[in-house]
Design a protein around this nucleic acid. Structure first.
Length: 807
DNA sequence: GAGTTTGAAACT
DNA sequence: CAGTTTCAAACTC
């Protein structure tokens, strides 16, 4: 799910802000997508943070008739994290984790066979046994570093939990349950109850209901994060087989005690098997897991990923849109299933954004010191409007799901085709995971409540915004010496953002540049924010919608690791690679719009600038500069190339150029640079950048010709290189085989001179004997033949000698 | 790579 | 709002 704060929405380009495709859904049908913490009164709660929380309890309730379901959960252990999500009819997700180091890889297939997977590193075992297609629940338990994923009756699960001595937080979600209890160190089991039944609210699901709707989304983040993860849920009656395609993700970044325990990251994604698409086929969940990270012995962050492949065919959702109301009602989140046919319009998805608000409503996420459990309860009153709008006018339309920033803890970068700007969407793990399965073979629908991204893939996946400290650690250029980045083969750098309180600048947040994300500073709910450019996310190469926790967020410079989990079918490198010209600013400190990096809402990275302040180390100055620019021009950070008026070209410069000498046919001209023609709003002099301009045509023709020439040259080079390589490959065997050398290699200078002397001597001999010219030539040629034979003979002999030596 | 040109941004 | 200055990218040599 894409998230853009209401404030940022106002800054988004027209493409994004286009609300034509918005399908607004009445709030009454949103099934309680709102999520609000009890402490939501604190509007300054950071949107997201990886603050050094040792524990947290989250309760997200959707479709709760009354506040009674909104509870503040209390964790008895400092290291425990608990998140409870419940929707109206008691569908719920409850996750509680301890500091147990855990790596899990499991797969819950549709078959009844028992699957047991043991992680080779941690020995964590996940087994799924006796899974019945009709079973409504399975218990996912972990004890002593062992997670057992079983499909059990709800009662069994409850008993198991009780036996484990850890009262689980059970959130019933219509048609499914997800219950996770504390893992680990005390042997508490983890239970994931994922009932499939479409039973009525409050009714425990029973096995055998094969037609029950599949579990809805799940994004559960547990750990020491202060922000709450958005949870996508749907009401039971509206769950259809199409929704079975929903990807379900549960992220449980678990922060262990700072001493030696490693943070735990749970990433649980669940997607119904494609076979479940068939109405006749019972839908069975598939859970896949993998160990995402392994880090240093001191800190051993481990990630449990339970994922169910999501086989959503994005093609099928073309033309469908997730309607999200943009800014009108920021406190409302409505996710409309756009994939399903109108006939199945009954589908509803409930977005339960658990994300931390950015200076807005949303949950109050309290951060406690290590050892002090945090209690966070959220209600659904702060549902955010979400919209999906077509963006980009090139290469087909794309849709972006935008919801207020406040509801999403994760960011997802949006790249609009033809647009230099890069936007950050706050996305849930569910979103990220779902997009990762775009190529899936199935179906015609998109789960409700899921973000829909249709397009050519220009929409980039993102990385979660982590705590300010985390971001700061990996600030590319201004990286402080104390910063540490430790990565392993599967670890990921994390951002450490500064905790600089910036309350005085917060008013300016109402109009941040696009591509900027506010991240809360750790240590408090109202401390400050860090503006994180969208591009910065990719700079850090964190194309994963996973949230990691760390054991020590305090300024100690904790090492952060992030597991790599390719999303959207794109590898990390592919996802993160986005070429950008480095700036060369020398006087502006990269805090003025002269700097392209700054103008694009990006941090400078690998630039050639001097005295750069466009980084996290100078966040205060940067924010001030942003505010200054916005004061001067509220649209300063809007893309200059936007939609034109009716009947005009889709793309045109928003302000028009003012060229005087370039004829608008050089890159000095912003219109020309953007490969668009000047429009009526341009104030250029001597403009030649119009449709019928012969100069422009000539220039374009030359440019095309040059491009063709370059391509041809490249092809020629490639071909030549290939031929050379081929030739070498042919000759190499001759040379290398037997260790011999070709005869001609024996024709050295000395041999040549000797041969010539022989030939001359033969010529003298013929002359002295007064032989006819023909005879003389014959004698010389014969001598030449003798010489060649000698050379060949010598070569052969040397080869034989060499071979004998080698033997 | 240094110097020049250019036009947007910033400033007055 | 207009004129001027500043700035960095584009361009030229």
């Amino acid at each position: 799910m894409d998230v853009v704060s209401p404030e940022l929405n106002s800054l988004l380009p027209d493409e994004i802000m286009d609300t034509e495709a918005i399908e607004d859904v009445p709030h009454s049908e949103s099934d309680g997508t709102a999520v609000q913490s009890q402490a939501s009164q604190d509007t300054s709660v950071p949107m997201e943070t990886d603050a050094p929380m040792q524990s947290e309890n989250l309760s997200i309730c959707s479709k709760v008739p009354s506040i009674e379901h909104t509870q503040t959960l209390t964790s008895s252990k400092a290291a425990d994290s608990m998140l409870t999500i419940s929707s109206g009819n008691e569908p719920s997700v409850s996750v509680s984790t301890s500091s147990t180091l855990l790596s899990l890889k499991s797969t819950l297939s549709t078959s009844t066979a028992t699957t047991k997977t043991t992680d080779s590193v941690t020995g964590t075992t996940v087994s799924t046994g006796g899974l019945q297609k009709h079973a409504t629940q399975f218990a996912f338990s972990a004890a002593n570093h062992q997670i057992i994923l079983n499909k059990v009756a709800s009662s069994q699960a409850t008993e198991a939990v009780k036996s484990a001595g850890t009262p689980p937080q059970i959130i019933k979600q219509e048609g499914q349950k997800l219950l996770v209890t504390a893992i680990g160190k005390s042997g508490q089991p983890i239970f994931f109850q994922l009932p499939h039944t479409g039973s009525k609210p409050g009714v425990s699901q029973t096995a055998g209901n094969t037609k029950s709707p599949t579990p809805q989304f799940k994004v559960v983040t547990i750990g020491e994060r202060t922000e709450l993860k958005p949870v996508m849920a749907s009401s039971g009656n509206q769950v259809t087989t199409l929704q079975a395609q929903q990807l379900k993700t549960v992220q449980i970044p678990k922060k262990t005690p700072a001493s030696s325990a490693a943070p735990i990251k749970f990433i649980i994604t669940k997607t119904v098997n494609s076979k479940g698409l068939s109405p006749q086929m019972p839908v069975s969940p598939v859970i896949q897991g993998r160990v995402l990270t392994q880090s240093s012995p001191v800190m051993t962050p481990k990630t449990i990923t339970l994922s169910e492949p999501h086989n959503t065919n994005m093609q099928s959702i073309s033309g469908k849109k997730i309607a999200i109301s943009p800014l009108k009602t920021p406190s409302k989140v409505t996710v409309v299933s756009v994939a399903s046919p109108p006939s199945s319009a009954s589908q509803k998805s409930v977005a339960l954004p658990v994300g931390v608000a950015l200076g807005q409503q949303i949950l109050a996420v309290q951060q406690s010191t290590p050892g002090s459990p945090i209690k966070v309860a959220t209600s659904q009153t702060t549902a955010q409007n979400i919209k999906s709008v077509p963006v980009g006018g090139v290469g087909g339309s794309q849709y972006k799901t935008i919801i207020p920033l406040s509801t999403q803890p994760n960011v997802q970068q949006i790249q609009v085709p033809g647009n230099r700007f890069h936007y950050v969407r706050l996305v849930t793990a569910t979103t990220a995971s779902s997009t990762g399965q775009l190529s899936g073979p199935n179906t015609s629908s998109v789960q409700t409540g899921k973000p829909v991204m249709v397009g050519t893939g220009a929409v980039r996946m993102s990385v979660p915004v982590v705590s300010a400290q985390a971001i700061k650690q990996v600030v590319p250029k201004p990286l402080p010496s104390a910063a540490q980045v430790v990565t392993t083969a599967q670890t990921q750098q994390r951002l450490i953002m500064p905790a600089t309180p910036l309350p005085q600048i917060q008013p300016g947040f109402t109009s941040l540049p696009p591509g900027t994300v506010l991240a809360p500073a750790p240590g408090g709910s109202s401390v400050g924010y860090t503006v994180v450019p969208a591009q910065y996310v990719t700079q850090l190469q964190q194309p994963f919608a996973t949230l990691a926790s760390s054991s020590s967020f305090p300024a100690s410079g904790a090492i952060q690791t992030q597991a790599k989990l390719p999303l959207n079918g794109v590898s990390a490198a592919e996802t993160t690679s986005r070429p950008r010209k480095p700036c060369n600013c020398t006087k502006s400190q990269c805090l003025k719009l002269y700097c392209d990096c700054f103008a694009n809402g990006e941090f400078c990275n690998n630039c050639n600038c001097n005295n750069c302040f466009n980084n996290l180390e100078h966040e205060t100055e940067r924010l001030k500069a942003i505010k200054t620019c916005l004061d001067r021009n509220p649209e300063a950070f809007k893309p200059k190339i936007g939609k034109g008026k009716e009947g005009e070209s889709d793309r045109r410069h928003s302000k028009g150029c003012n060229c005087k000498r370039s004829g608008c046919l050089k890159n000095y001209c912003e219109c020309y640079e953007a490969k668009i023609m000047c429009s009526s709003i341009c104030k250029c002099i001597g403009c030649k950048n119009f449709e019928e301009s012969p100069e422009r045509k000539t220039l374009m023709h030359l440019a095309d010709a040059a491009e063709v020439r370059v391509q041809q040259q490249t092809a020629a080079k490639t071909k030549l290189s290939s031929q050379i390589s081929d030739l070498l490959m042919r000759t190499m065997p001759v040379v290398s085989s037997g260790g011999g050398r070709l005869p001609f290699t024996f024709v050295t200078k000395e041999v040549l001179e000797a041969t010539c002397e022989c030939l001359l001597e033969q010529a003298k001999k013929a002359e002295q004997s007064r032989q006819p010219q023909a005879e003389a030539e014959r004698m010389i040629l014969e001598e030449f033949g003798h010489c060649l034979m000698s050379i060949i003979s010598s070569a052969g002999k040397a080869k034989a000698d060499c071979a004998s030596i080698n033997c």
